[in-house]
């Protein structure tokens, strides 16, 4: 079975970030790139499934990113993925969900897959729109919020979907797309042997010319525009309850919580 994991390269999750007011885009210069943390769970789910299925199951990591992202992609290879495909072209810059998912889908058609796994949400843009759009363009079902893949193979998949009140067991055909939640299990460390071996693994680069697109991508292909951007409001100063004794302190906190309708 061929498993493909879509990953996004995002600016270091812990770094301080700045938005360029002119372009309304994140200033990426000087920021280290990391694997989108949610996508590490997708990789983990893929590797678990590969271990379970054995045989000729392979895990390919797929990303749309500038060439400079290669070093970050190697981390996914060091974790245990077999190879990687990078869709990399200056013409993709400025793509929104619409354009990104279209370009990715065309590339994924070339790559081929039995099971496509996505992290579901990116740490930077937070749109969560790409996986659904990919499924639409690729004409495959999307099983979202999967917490556990029970079975996969012979053209079928059975998985547990997380819901607010518990989980559903659902099944569907293969090829399919799934998005996973953090319940699939903590992403493994890249083994040191894996790090040493990652350089020997193949990273195939695809460019727009390889895809034969019949629609514009990049800024020209984007249908959405960021109109305004603002920083979140700073958190209000905490209210300190001062009380003569424990009982009156507890009463003050109780009154506050009730006033806010929290209890």
């Amino acid at each position: 079975m061929k498993i493909v994991v879509t990953v996004k390269l995002v600016p270091d999750t812990n770094a301080a970030k700045r938005i360029d007011p002119a372009t309304k885009r994140l200033v990426r210069t000087g920021l280290e790139t990391v694997l989108n943390p949610f996508d590490e769970y997708a990789i983990e789910a893929a590797l678990q499934l590969k271990e379970k299925l054995g045989g000729d199951t392979t895990v390919t990591v797929f990303t749309m990113a500038p060439e400079t992202g290669k070093e970050t992609i190697r981390k996914a290879l060091a974790m245990g993925a077999d190879d990687a495909v990078m869709l990399s072209d200056a013409g993709l810059e400025g793509s929104d969900v619409w354009a990104t998912s279209y370009a990715m889908a065309q590339a994924l058609k070339k790559t081929g897959f039995d099971l496509l796994i996505a992290g579901g949400l990116a740490d930077d843009g937070n749109t969560g729109g790409v996986p659904g759009a990919l499924a639409e363009y690729l004409g495959v079902p999307a099983l979202t919020n999967v917490r556990k893949i029970e079975e996969a193979g012979d053209g079928k998949i059975r998985a547990q979907r997380e819901t607010d009140s518990g989980y559903q067991v659902v099944s569907g055909p293969l090829p399919s797309l799934i998005t996973v939640t953090m319940a699939v299990g903590e992403p493994r460390y890249a083994s040191l042997k894996g790090i040493m071996g990652a350089k020997k693994k193949t990273i195939v680069t695809l460019m727009l010319a390889d895809l034969g697109l019949d629609r514009a991508v990049g800024t020209d292909g984007a249908k959405t525009e960021v109109l305004e951007i603002s920083a979140p409001k700073p958190r209000e100063k905490a209210r300190v309850v001062e009380a003569a004794d424990g009982a009156s302190g507890a009463q003050a906190i109780f009154d506050f919580l009730r006033e806010k309708k929290l209890i």
């Binding site: 460390y189 083994s191 040191l192 042997k193 894996g194 790090i195 040493m196």
Partner: peptide
């Protein structure tokens, strides 16, 4: 051991990770 630290500087053919001495010192 699972991470590969216990054999970090030895070649893969002997069960190691095949890393160099600089990597070993950093580890």
């Amino acid at each position: 051991a699972e991470l590969g630290l216990m054999g970090l500087p030895f070649p893969e053919q002997y069960g190691g990770a095949g890393a160099d001495t600089v990597s070993y010192a950093l580890a």
